[in-house]
Write a protein that binds this DNA or RNA. Structure first.
Lengths: 218, 218
DNA sequence: TAGATTGTTAATCGATTAACAATC
DNA sequence: TAGATTGTTAATCGATTAACAATC
């Protein structure tokens, strides 16, 4: 199912690194650079240059020997590969502090992710505005998601409400969910769930920090 | 440097999976379970049971043949391995919507991460409260971080202020940073930076979604 | 004892990297 | 042409998994 244009399977790691390359490439484009070598890209992303070249050849040959990669072209190609070359609408549930922060988050917008619908269960919040969007009641979720053909949902509610929101999203046909609560949410296998819990990363780093400090302590 | 008690190097992947196991184990403990097999843990985490057993043996042998792992013991051991067996203080910069959401986030607290200092550059916000914490002026960051011996910093400010905050944190001796802005922040190699940008994950999933829909469209 | 499940070895698998011919 | 850098092969490296003896 997941294969390049030659029919070969693409390693998971490759797909994980593409967004990393894309971020740096967009930065370089903003800085007015026109070409970049795999060596330079390697420095900026902490990825081995040979690996970058190998990763890219899964999708075609985008570079010029002796020159490097044209940045504008490569951004365009990587965006197309990822499906990030057009706008994606997001539905957001939870009009609290977190929801407001997400709706106004620039990073999403930069990559074509636009929050176009916000829901809340609290009648006091329904009808208020966050940015340009008017908060709707959660009972309107299914209709709006269907009408707007939204496939990405964001869960930014209190923990106890998380599973219920996930179920509503699933029923409405949402395919990707971002869960901002610490709760383990269950979804069917057709849905991809991302937990944006910073705790996993913190714990991971903590391991190394503990070792380092252990060394100096003992 | 990163080695188990037998002096062997521990693969990065092992350390990445430990927080995953821990999350599920804590859940099981809450549900009142007393033991768990690697097979069951494998189901709950989507990790191969053999791998779970192998991962754990890097740190000792915690199970009982024929029985499984005692959950309370294993939670304790994994927390100790990760350094998550005591409280860690966090300094947070940015008292806006995002900052408030982070300061009140339950997931951090559950794992012993306590936000104990909040800073902002806006004089109108200085002196206000978020939860139990009184917002301090950003100029007090260095002193407070040093006094409280804080080693983890959270950046929740507008993008243009991110690098400045990172620099202040670095100067104050912070060792781990969570960057909630979409900006690429530069830190010295002694600092571990985590970008909690949901965009990378979204782009990653988008790849698979685009493929699947491509199939049904064509 | 019989059944279950760990800890561990050995085999497999796949990803990373070095090296270099091709070529801009 | 000389220098640079890609695309690609082949070698290395490391992680994953299957299998099973040990043992609760």
């Amino acid at each position: 199912m997941v294969a390049d244009e030659h029919g070969r399977r693409i390693p998971e790691g490759v797909i994980e690194r593409l967004p990393l390359y894309l971020g740096v490439l967009i930065q370089l484009r903003q800085d007015g650079q026109s070409t970049v070598s795999s060596a330079r890209l390697g420095e900026l992303t902490d990825v081995n240059p040979a690996q970058i070249r190998r990763d890219l050849t899964h999708f075609g040959s985008f570079g010029k020997r002796g020159v490097g990669y044209d940045i504008v072209t490569l951004v365009d190609r990587v965006q197309r590969i990822l499906g990030a070359d057009h706008v994606h609408r997001l539905a957001l549930v939870g009009a609290g502090n977190l929801g407001s922060a997400i709706a106004n988050y620039d990073g999403l917008r930069q990559h074509g992710f636009h929050v176009t619908a916000i829901f809340d269960a609290d009648p006091h919040k329904v009808g208020t505005r966050i940015g340009d969007i008017i908060v709707q009641h959660i009972d309107d979720l299914a209709r709006t998601v269907t009408d707007q053909n939204i496939r990405i949902g964001v869960i930014a509610v209190p923990p106890e409400a998380a599973q219920g929101v996930a179920d509503r999203f699933t029923a409405a046909g949402v395919r990707i969910m971002l869960n901002y609560t610490p709760v383990i949410v269950r979804v069917p296998p057709t849905v991809t769930l991302h937990n944006t819990d910073p705790v996993h990363e913190l714990l991971h780093t903590l391991y190394y920090l503990s070792r380092l400090e252990g060394v100096s302590r003992v």
